[in-house]
Amino acid sequence: MTIKQQQLLLGLFFLGIPLLWLLVWVIAPIFVVLYLSFTSFNILSPPEWVGFWNYEDLWHDNLYWRAFGNTLYFTAFAMPLGISLSMLLALLVNTRLPGAWLFRTIYYLPVVSPLIATALVWVLFYEVSSGLFNYLLNSVGLSAQPWLNSTTTAMPAIIIMSVWKSLGFNMVIILAALQAIPKELNEAASLDGAGRVRQFFAITLPLLRPAMTYVLITTLIGSFQVFSQVYVMTEGGPNNSTVTLVHLIYRTAFQNLDFGYASAMAMVLFIILVIASFINLRLVSRGNLYE
């Protein structure tokens, strides 16, 4: 065997392992779910083919559309809020000030904390009679809020918690991208008389585009897949005001044992995410970076 053949074989081997992993655990399940979405399946007995029935039913399911609306609501607020705050934090910690590393660590801590555990702690923060937030509100003379118990405040409460939780992750991505921007560009702009705001919008932001594309797509997918915080903090209530698509899929599959219908829901979510990611990719990554 020649060296070239050996290299090819080695390459195929190392490429093959992740490809096999991807095929078995990611691609194959997508096709399984696609098949199940055309069946009536309760996991305890074999699936029965029902054609497009699940999809027709989905179209008339008010709860599904409510969950869809709630997921959009969550995404519409959690995504821009989370990304802008991450950007702000990244800019703040991207300094040579003493102790900046400490802040980076502190901001990243929520990311490494288990979501379920942090959600449980936030439930205590939001507690009506003895929670931290109402204590703070009362201490400045404001009235206590029912937070997780009101249809008006439950979703914002979950958004606040989710933004806090994911802030550090996006911050690190943006920070890495910020530090990769050549300093000469800013120095040259500064010599040309550009202020810090102008430098940010004319140099920093455009050069952050590859990182922002990644951050936008992963945050979008993450927002559409919001589940754990809903499961722990509100279970979709009150009055279905926080029921989201993945939470509904979970309930339909594992509590109602209607895996066929849940698969149809999952396929619709999958298609939505593929389309949204594609649009996102086209919009954000358009044009040459250094034009």
């Binding site: 249809t151 979709g236 209530g237 009150p238 009055n239 279905n240």
Partner: peptide, 8 residues
């Protein structure tokens, strides 16, 4: 949710 709606 029905009971929650009634309470609301």
């Amino acid at each position: 949710p029905a009971v929650e709606a009634i309470i609301s």
